[in-house]
Design a protein around this nucleic acid. Structure first.
Lengths: 237, 237
DNA sequence: TGCGCCGATTGATCCCGGTCAAACCACGAG
DNA sequence: CTCGTGGTTTGACCGGGATCAATCGGCGCA
């Protein structure tokens, strides 16, 4: 059976939750799901101009690349996150799948119509954009002032926070948790403003310190949450 | 005569322009203007919780400071800009006047009511937040990858762009333009992720290169717009 | 089983910008 | 006029992370 908005697992955490139940069939008809393999482009340069999306599974990245090839990842998008620029033109930034992912796509014009009809959706979108802005600003602090070690710890803490399967219990004091990092070493470098070599070295250093354990590939296990948080801190918040 | 929304000079560039003329008296009654001396706090830590504002004149800065004293300026707010977090809690960031300034204050709850009544205001706010997010992301690129020289050039270009008095003509090919930088050397350092010493040295270097001319205090004159743009680039956009 | 490829790791060296320290320069108060 | 103060400039030195370069390791493929 084709999945619908009524059965959508991430709706409670997506902007769609602002829509009344009776509108679900309507938005179900105007949206469609799509699977993207890691590395595929979600929005190419200018054509965020006519689509918006919600992340169902996997992780996307938004990046800025300069004429001379330098790249900065300026945002990660986790399940439940909204991606798109309603009421705005497309930007030069590109959005790509960092991992294999599923997205739910809307025509931008129709989504804007929904915004007009449902004040609650506007409200929720504004909330989400405020969160995005806060995240961007926290990252500005990281890029402007944190050391390589603090950056890696912050990144891992972020990933744990957004990706670790929640088992109902407050996860703060679970002994160890493991996830797959959603980015390659190169991408981590692009996100943290570091080179791939530094990323590699610092991860090793954190492992030697007993804070994390690096598995083959992208797997990582956090052995000491407190030490990780302490390293990440410098209390950016 | 007390200035009113009807005669407000910056209304065409503020979010208020989304409101119909017949609502002007209403918002005039629910807003009030305030003068702030440079350095004064507009929103202290948590109490962006109950006020929002529009910048009438001068420049404000939003900054993040960590427990150990490191500071990052994460946003500048120029005349016409909107400041505040409707539909969201206050943040740990503080907003202060970088220069002497005038602001127009609204109670947050009342502003949220306006958002509910006027769909166009929501729309314009969303546009503004998109711009803020774009600006933050451009700055992330700057902080992550640009050299000290590129950073200073980008900053000066930004200030020129937002502060230079526009005389109707397209200013791109005016020979030289002068402005007062809205930030002290220390603040520039905090905005660019550099130390005050580096800021000073690089400004000197740009002057020696004939790109700018530094006046006493905060005054600065751009002698070669193209060279400035070229130095700033690395084409972050 | 061997080869080629690509990302990750590790090492050696370099350099930009940070750090420490010392003037310098108005400006205001006594 | 002198002193103090706060922001700025300049110099000497240092170090974290970039750069350059070599090696490794898993995986697909012949």
């Amino acid at each position: 059976m084709r999945p619908t908005c009524r059965t959508c697992a991430i709706r409670p955490s997506a902007v769609c939750r602002a829509l009344p139940p009776e509108a679900l069939d309507q938005i179900n008809r105007m949206s469609h799901r799509k699977h993207l393999a890691a590395g595929r482009t979600l929005f190419a340069a200018e054509d965020a101009a006519h689509t918006v999306a919600t992340v169902l599974a996997g992780v996307a990245k938004t990046s800025v690349t300069s004429a001379d090839g330098r790249t900065q990842i300026v945002g990660l998008h986790f399940p439940g996150d909204f991606i798109g620029r309603p009421h705005a033109a497309g930007s030069a930034n590109t959005v790509e799948a960092a991992t294999d992912m599923d997205v739910c796509l809307f025509d931008k014009g129709r989504f804007e119509a929904l915004l007009r009809e449902h004040e609650g959706l506007s409200r929720l979108l504004i909330e989400r954009m405020t969160e995005d802005l806060d995240a961007a600003r926290e990252w500005m602090f990281l890029l402007g002032h944190k050391s390589a070690e603090e950056r890696l710890a912050s990144f891992i803490a972020l990933c744990i926070d957004r990706l670790e399967p929640r088992c109902g219990v407050d996860a703060a004091d679970q002994p160890a948790s493991r996830i797959d990092l959603p980015l390659s070493r190169t991408e981590i470098g692009h996100f943290l403003g570091l080179t791939i070599e530094t990323v590699s070295r610092v991860l090793r250093r954190l492992q030697t310190a007993g804070v994390i354990e690096i598995e083959r590939g992208r797997g990582i296990r956090v052995l000491d949450r407190e030490a990780l948080a302490a390293t990440a801190a410098s209390a950016a918040d």
